[in-house]
Amino acid sequence: MSTTHHHSLRERLAALRGPGTAPRPMDARALAALAANPGCRRRALLDAAGVDKGAVAERLGAPARFGQSRFAFSRGHAFEARVKRDGCVELLRLLGVEDTAADLPDLGAPGPEGRVARTKLALAEARSGVWTLLDHPLLALDVAGSTAYLEPDAVAVAPDGRWTVVEIKSFPILDGGADAMKVGAAARQSAVYVLALDAVEAGRSRTDVLLVCPKDFSNLPTAEWVDVRKQLAVTRRQLGRLTRIEEIAAALPGGTTFDLGYDPDGRTVTRPVDELSAAVDTVPMAYAPECLSTCELAFHCRDRSRAEGRVDALGRGLRGELGELTTVDAVLAAASGLAGEPDDPAVTALRRAAALRAEALAEAAKEGPGCP
């Protein structure tokens, strides 16, 4: 992408976000969720523009019901500080390194571009034969023509030059194992970091990451290696399927913005709800029940999906089996024989199911009201 084109896209995304509104960074968790639903243009565009989807959802009357509590957030920071204290000796121990120190380069620099450049320099300057630990490095990843800045908890550079992503979480490892869903989420998030490191130099990163968690019910750090090859392959493929951000933005009506319209005191939102809702609805969505645990706009999109009678609201599995039948009305019409191609496998299955249901109801009617 040329510098002029990139600048033009940034201006367009800033206009969508609203004048004077600072962009929310697109983190690895958001990218992993986006990769799980690459067909959702709404999330892709709003995330690329740095729109505060939580604030938008709140204004629309459909606030998100997930997220980390303040207590969990503080606990996570305290645990990470313990893992990294005293020159990261505990982290080195978990990496299998005893009685040695590590280089801890300063990664400070002005602006995200400066921090990304400093991280690349630190990776390049890591000394052979010595451990180097990068504390909160900043990585850049191109996502459908927009730059996402990603900040892993740490990246370890081994004496042989291999890079290892370190992910620190506050959920416990109990009796040698952790909650499978939480580990899976951490693996998907870590895969995004590995992908970003591959953009710096392919082949240097390990495809197993070090997951550091509290042991049992204590605050003692322990760790397990997590293989993220599967998540890495899926994330790379799904992000590659995303429609380019500039194409999505170009398809919007002129003047579209997701600005909440804060008044001069910066606290009160003044934009009418119906106006904001209309702006959000100009961007096509791809709602699925899984969105409820990963996207702040999920409840708004679910309401719209239900109002339009979309089968998406029933789950991706069923949506895939129904093929060209995208609404509940179309499904009912196909089942009753009023519409649909007879040689369509979905239509055939629906009509067969309707016939079996009719037979069952007829038998029940014959047996009378005492039938269970």
Rank of each mutant, 00 (worst) to 15 (best):
V228H: 03
G315T: 07
L134G: 04
P264I: 11
L252Y: 09
A251K: 08
A22E: 15
T257A: 11
A22N: 13
V212Q: 04
S2D: 15
V331T: 02
K230F: 07
T147Q: 06
A279V: 08
R357Y: 09
L31H: 15
P342S: 09
V234F: 01
K230C: 03
L123G: 00
D259S: 13
A72W: 08
V200W: 13
L252V: 12
I173N: 04
V166D: 03
A365S: 09
P253D: 10
T4N: 07
G176K: 14
V269P: 02
V234K: 02
T235Y: 03
C88M: 07
R236C: 05
C40W: 03
A298I: 06
R204C: 02
V143P: 00
R306T: 03
L297T: 08
I245G: 03
F66G: 15
A109Q: 13
S277Y: 00
R82T: 12
R29E: 13
A117I: 09
D263C: 04
A223M: 04
A330M: 07
E80K: 07
N37S: 11
P253E: 12
P272N: 08
P25I: 02
P112V: 09
R310S: 14
S218K: 10
L34W: 04
L314Q: 08
H136T: 13
T164D: 01
K53D: 04
G114W: 01
R351T: 03
A339E: 13
P342A: 06
G368Q: 11
A251C: 06
A122T: 00
G67E: 02
